[in-house]
């Protein structure tokens, strides 16, 4: 026993090193796979408030672009039938789709931190639990999809961007309705690949890709991007398609978080069916 203690003491630095590495690595694995450690990421209040201060300063530099985007979006919304949009207060809009009895609510939020240059990118938004945001809600902008809420604190939420190695979005080609998945392979933040589209579909360059509405996160028909390149590799029954995102993720400033009131019902039913 005494020898063991002496051995441990002599090697104390090595054991401290091991201990710290095990802590770090465990945190990393837990956080990437189960996203448990919600209290200590960018939605936590210390880093959230620092990002808020930075954003308050930096937003002045992008006011012009933001104004143009908002003006364009206003024009677009004005051209749509106002019956579909019930205004509840300044920031919350409700869309009632009477045919399918589905109800989505959009809450506007400001992006206070964003990255596009890593393999796994995240965003931080300035609203959280107090504004009714919960985990797994979809996030879109006026130009296309953005990501999925990963964690929420009282006043901030942290979002997994579409630009992430684990992101897989159920998508379809608007013109033909064939369903595939959009994956980001990490080379360029403007481009992604679309897989699982069979070769008999007569796709062309410029076809629009929209969300399929199969997942409970995004409603159907939100623009993802358009096809810029497609080819068939020999012996393959699926296309290799490159798409360009409609959203320039580097310029994000205002986004909408989607609340789906029927999400639990859909998820529970799907889970029940799969278990049988």
């Amino acid at each position: 026993m005494r020898n063991l203690l002496i051995f441990l003491w002599k090697r104390n630095l090595f054991f401290l090193f091991l201990l710290l590495e095990v802590i770090s690595f465990t945190l990393f694995i837990e956080n990437s796979y189960y996203q448990k450690a919600a209290f200590i990421n960018s939605s936590s209040s210390i880093s959230g408030s620092i990002y808020q201060i930075q954003n308050n300063i930096a937003e002045y530099f992008s006011l012009k672009v933001v104004n143009t985007t908002l003006a364009n979006e206003n024009a677009h919304l004005r051209s749509l039938s106002t019956d579909n949009y019930l205004k509840i207060n300044n920031t919350v809009f409700t869309k009632n789709d009477t045919t399918y009895k589905l109800q989505y609510q959009y809450v506007s939020a400001k992006v206070i931190n964003n990255s596009t240059n890593k393999r796994n990118n995240y965003l931080t938004l300035n609203i959280g639990k107090n504004q009714g945001i919960t985990k797994d809600m979809g996030v879109i902008s006026s130009r296309g999809i953005v990501g999925i809420v990963k964690d929420v604190s009282d006043n901030f939420s942290s979002v997994i961007s579409v630009l992430h190695k684990d992101s897989k979005i159920s998508a379809k080609i608007k013109k033909y309705g064939d369903v595939g998945s959009v994956l980001w392979n990490g080379y360029n933040y403007r481009r992604a690949s679309l897989i699982d589209i069979p070769t008999h579909v007569p796709i062309t360059r410029g076809d629009t890709i929209i969300t399929s509405g199969f997942s409970s996160v995004f409603p159907e028909g939100i623009v993802i991007g358009k096809i810029i390149d497609h080819r068939i590799e020999s012996g393959n029954t699926f296309y290799t398609i490159t798409i360009e995102f409609s959203e320039d993720f580097n310029k994000l400033s205002y986004v909408y978080i989607i609340k789906n009131f029927f999400k639990n019902e859909q998820n529970d039913l799907e889970k029940k069916t799969q278990n049988e």
Partner: peptide, 23 residues
């Protein structure tokens, strides 16, 4: 060791990559 761990964890807190920079 300890200060490097704290440094890594602090960077992680801001980049949503808990444990990555610390390791």
């Amino acid at each position: 060791l300890i200060s490097s761990f704290l440094l890594g964890i602090s960077i992680d807190m801001f980049s949503d990559s808990l444990g990555l920079h610390a390791t």
